[in-house]
Design a protein around this nucleic acid. Structure first.
Lengths: 320, 320
DNA sequence: TCATTCTAGTGATACGTATAACTGTGCTGT
DNA sequence: ACAGCACAGTTATACGTATCACTAGAATGA
């Protein structure tokens, strides 16, 4: 073995006094009973002693696999997706996979057209319905925060329960005129929030905005300027809530005295603005999604998961 | 060629009526003059027609490379690093590399001990001095927002100019008692901000905090409760500024009437809280860092870069 | 006893690429 | 006229792994 290079299975074989194929059989663990326990021990010891680590490129070439998973999200800069990434990446590296991010904007509702070669599986979140049709070959896929009736196993939080918690909280404070600052995106999770809210709140006022503070600000300005303005604004995420908060400030309205505001996510924004919001278990969702994907890759089935999400009450909600 | 599989260089060779090695020579572009222009054309056409894409695993095995770059940052959930990642990843995929994230906490100031095998290069940011000593073999490395006197080429923004801009802005408004809410981390960029500030502001009051809203809140509470409290608080990043903003609210102080606040980063937080802050070109820094790393990998030298950073004035600063 | 099966391995091969080593032309230069 | 050489390719090989095909010897069965 060259001193400057990593040991190969051939080196291990030489050290253990067996053939390379025996080493491969022992270390893969896929050949129960093919090798006697005593030689297997010898091989394992030699591998341990030399610090043998299989060459990923060689293994990939032989197996036609890449040990690479692609995470498809609108933007890794959005903290929710960054958290999903973090959880998923941890599980991935623990299992010898690497996780690369492929950006797929929310606006792109056409068929997905990212690189589907050279990856073993995909994790996706917030993809429009039509994007999924772009899959040319059936890539193993797990989806996060997406339609459970869709084509792939999902890892979600309990949207309906979360919406129920928000409404109960606001009702408990005495609110009756409730508005909805909705994300202007045709994606399952936001549709669900809108439907859940409409079900529970008769006479719901809705305004739509792109997911940004600026757009949330504009739309909230409109909602809060109407003659019988809502006393509470349920926002589809913390970014929109931040926009609403700013709008209230600009209109001279007190939060929560004049208007209560709630969000979704519980990221930096919520803590900074002291927003009442739904804390999404984003990192945990990433972990579970990757775990499920690994199961799918091994041919095991993956059951859909629904995690609880907790309503965190802060100073942005109060009695009207 | 099997219908369900990707074409290989051998398929291209058959289609073009040449040998596989000729295909390799033509497509690698490393053998000028070895193949006549006419056959080269034929080969390129065949490759185009079949949609040939080289198998990364085979190439990696042959070349002993991985086409994988590791990005070492404290946390991808921090928006600054997420933005760096985004920029770097774009350049990486454009060049056929993939970029994986390896978390290395700010607190870990011991020698770096991540996986240095199976990667071709490293991008790192906000690493403590001692962490760099952990590199066992000399991995090609480019550093972001780090000491230009360090062991690797750097891509930075102009810290001194940014600090100068902040101080000029505050002085112009009439501030004299200026405080510094400093990050409690032994990292070049924060040391530079502290030194730059101390140079320009005699009698600077400093408080130290971990980078979180909660820690910023606690430390700002202390600074703003002192008898001759500063009329302006320069914070090392937007997270700390958000903590300071919250502290001001809790103390009943008006922003900017009683206290002006500035930050660094210009991310969600700054927009939501209408913070005056230094807009860091994070995504651009990521792009440039990856471009530089690719240059290093090709044996070309990489000059250190210093990008300008713009002071964005919002409502959190005003006359005392 | 001898054909059969089982055990515990070995040897050979293929994955797809890049490149070193080689080959057969046609052209120089002296 | 012939050694030498640039040209334009081809053939062969190696990278490290997993697995198929094979085999020598031991155990088994009737």
């Amino acid at each position: 073995m060259p001193a400057n290079s990593r040991p190969t299975s051939k080196d291990v074989a030489a050290a253990a006094g067996v053939s390379q194929s025996t080493v491969s059989m022992v270390l893969s663990g896929k050949w129960p009973g093919r090798v006697s326990e005593s030689t297997a021990q010898t091989v394992r010891e030699a591998a341990q002693r030399l610090g043998y680590r299989p060459n990923p490129a060689a293994r990939n070439l032989r197996l036609g696999r890449t040990r690479t998973i692609m995470l498809v999200v609108p933007a890794i800069t959005a903290p929710f997706f960054a958290a999903v990434y973090t959880g998923a990446a941890r599980v991935a590296v623990e299992n010898g996979f690497s996780l690369v991010v492929f950006p797929w904007p929310l606006e792109a509702d056409g068929p997905f057209s990212g690189p589907q070669e050279a990856i073993d599986g995909m994790l996706a979140s917030s993809m429009g319905e039509h994007s999924l049709e772009g899959m040319r070959r059936p890539v193993p896929l797990v989806m996060v925060d997406s339609d459970p009736a869709g084509p792939a196993p999902t890892v979600n939080f309990d949207v309906a329960a979360a919406v129920g918690d928000i409404v109960s909280h606001l009702r408990g404070l005495g609110h009756t005129r409730i508005g909805h600052l909705a994300a202007d995106i045709n994606v399952w999770t936001f549709r669900s929030r809108a439907l859940g809210l409409a079900d529970r709140v008769p006479g719901l006022v809705t305004g739509r905005a792109a997911i940004s503070i600026a757009a949330g600000f504009e739309t909230a300005m409109a909602l809060l300027s109407s003659p019988d303005r809502p006393t509470a604004l349920v926002c589809d995420d913390d970014t929109l809530a931040a926009g609403a908060h700013k709008a209230a400030r600009h209109l001279g309205l007190d939060v929560p005295g004049d208007v209560s505001i709630t969000g979704f996510d519980d990221l930096y924004l919520a803590e900074a603005l002291e927003l009442t919001t739904v804390r999404l278990p984003a990192e945990r969702m990433g972990e579970l999604a990757m775990t499920h994907l690994l199961a799918v890759l091994e041919g095991r089935p993956a059951e859909p998961v629904v995690l609880p999400a907790e309503l965190v009450v802060r100073r942005s909600t109060g009695a009207p």
